[in-house]
């Protein structure tokens, strides 16, 4: 069973135009522009401290822009507060999962459908998430904090899908997981892309993520250094030397 992600007509779904942002006294992003088209899976890759997480936090409105503009389906996010971003169809899987550790798996999923607009389709989406992650169904009444790292990541992704998003933001889904689990998480990401969701993923594990996504941007010290189809980046000398150690 699957619910196709909503498709929108042509052009970019998410567009960042000349975005600069940072924290008090420290600029983390410089004039970053990128776009994600409907149905596409895009990665932002780069080393630790490049500003990848900051980039996602600007989209989820957890930090303010100092310059530039973010558009979701042509609508500016400028005046949108953090808790209303999801109503525009942007769901995020935060770094380190950020599950509600003392709630059960199913309660976590239920919270993902917190928006009044998402509640009527709750049962349907729960079925869908359970079909994607049968493991979560087995553990539905378990307290989320007691899940293994990989299961927590599934639960975090499931929670994000419960709102029926157009665009899924994934922040370092492989962080803190055992190598074998990382593989299965990337397999899941691939499957979610195949379900038709539009995905923007931020990842340090460059080799793995480039095998999964359509396109990628390389972010270094807050600036976009390269972009292109992932096969092209995987083959490029610069990436191979600097990041893949080949």
């Amino acid at each position: 069973m699957s619910i196709p992600a909503p498709k929108s007509s042509g052009g970019a779904m998410l567009r960042l135009e000349g975005v600069s942002a940072g924290y008090a006294g420290f600029q983390a992003l410089f004039n970053v522009s990128l776009e994600v088209r409907p149905g596409e899976s895009v990665a932002v890759i780069g080393p630790n401290g490049a500003g990848k997480t900051t980039l996602l936090r600007t989209v989820s409105k957890l930090i303010e822009l100092s310059a530039g503009e973010i558009l979701m389906e042509g609508r500016s996010l400028h005046a949108v507060p953090a808790h209303e971003v999801i109503a525009l169809g942007i769901a995020q899987v935060p770094e380190g999962r950020r599950l509600f550790a003392r709630l059960s798996v199913e309660e976590n999923l239920k919270m993902g459908a917190f928006l009044p607009a998402a509640r009527p389709r709750y049962t349907e989406r729960l079925k869908f998430v359970y079909s994607l992650f049968p493991r979560l169904q087995e553990r539905s009444s378990q307290i989320a904090g007691t899940l293994s790292g990989g299961e927590q990541q599934m639960c975090a992704i499931g929670r994000a899908l419960m709102s029926g998003p157009k665009l899924l933001l994934l922040d370092e889904p492989s962080a803190g997981l055992a190598p074998v689990v990382v593989q299965s998480i990337f397999a899941l990401v691939k499957r979610i892309c195949a379900e038709g969701y539009t995905v923007l993923i931020v990842e340090q594990n460059i080799r793995q993520v480039l095998k999964v996504v359509d396109r990628a941007y390389l972010l270094e010290t807050g600036r976009i250094k390269m972009d292109g189809p992932s096969a092209e980046l995987l083959a490029s000398d610069e990436i191979r030397k600097a990041y893949l150690g080949i």
Binding site: S60, L62, P81, A82, H83, E84, V85, I86, A87, A91, Q92, P94, R98, L99, F100, A101, R102, L103, E107, K110, M111, G112, F114, L115, A118, R159, A160, S163
Partner: peptide, 24 residues
């Protein structure tokens, strides 16, 4: 109430609670 679940969510992970649409 849903508010209780939401508030528990807030007390555990405030930013994540905001990200799922809770007006903290």
């Amino acid at each position: 109430s849903m508010a209780r679940l939401a508030l528990e969510a807030i007390s555990q992970e405030e930013d994540a609670a905001g990200s799922i649409g809770i007006n903290v």
